[in-house]
Design a protein around this nucleic acid. Sequence first.
DNA 1: AGCACGATTGCCT
DNA 2: GGCAATCGTGCTT
Length: 217
Amino acid sequence: MSGGCKMRTFGKKMSTEFYTADALCLAKALLGKLLVTVHEGEVTAGIIADTEAYMGTTDRACHAFGGHRSAKNESMYLPGGHAYVYMIYGMYYCVNVTANEKNIPEAVLIRGILPFYGREIMVSRRASRTGVVSPHVSSHIADGPGKLCRAMAIDRSCDALRLDGERIYICDAGLTPTEEVTASERLNIDYAGEDALRPWRFALSQKDPLRRYAAAQ
DNA sequence: AGCACGATTGCCT
DNA sequence: GGCAATCGTGCTT
């Protein structure tokens, strides 16, 4: 503990037990929780609003399908409550929350967050690529897996980190929704055959009170 | 060594 | 709606 440093807090970090659920349950349970990152002293936080479950070795859409294991996806085999971060298309990162027990490679992709704290920092990070902040960008700061990672400064250095640490963590800010959650098919996994049809994407609906609350921030 | 491709995004027509 | 960007990984030569 370093003395004298006043750190913004948002709520109680989720317990290890919270993450021992399977990815399907965890994908729903994560909605409404707060994802927080601290990068170079800058704090950003977002309400998790869109998730997808990846159900391990039997799920053709999962990076661990068939027991596949490599340096890239090794963190999927960690116990629940760790970050699995990978690069996609050579230019974006996606962040997942590992689920279940050690050596059961299930994970939940965070597909979207509602900016809750540090919104201007998120906007500036998203604009850094072109140097221009268009009105369109400012209303779509973190509504995609690649976008939220850029907005919250999440990259491969976050891979395998526990989600109750200092660099990146998830906590309960008392905003957990109890209804208005939609289930639908996961996106961009056509290669997964019949598994592409499973309704394993979960999102807070437009009518969710939480969304209206966040929009008013 | 070579090459196809991806749990995406943004810009173009 | 189409498509290029861009690179680590994994599979083929």
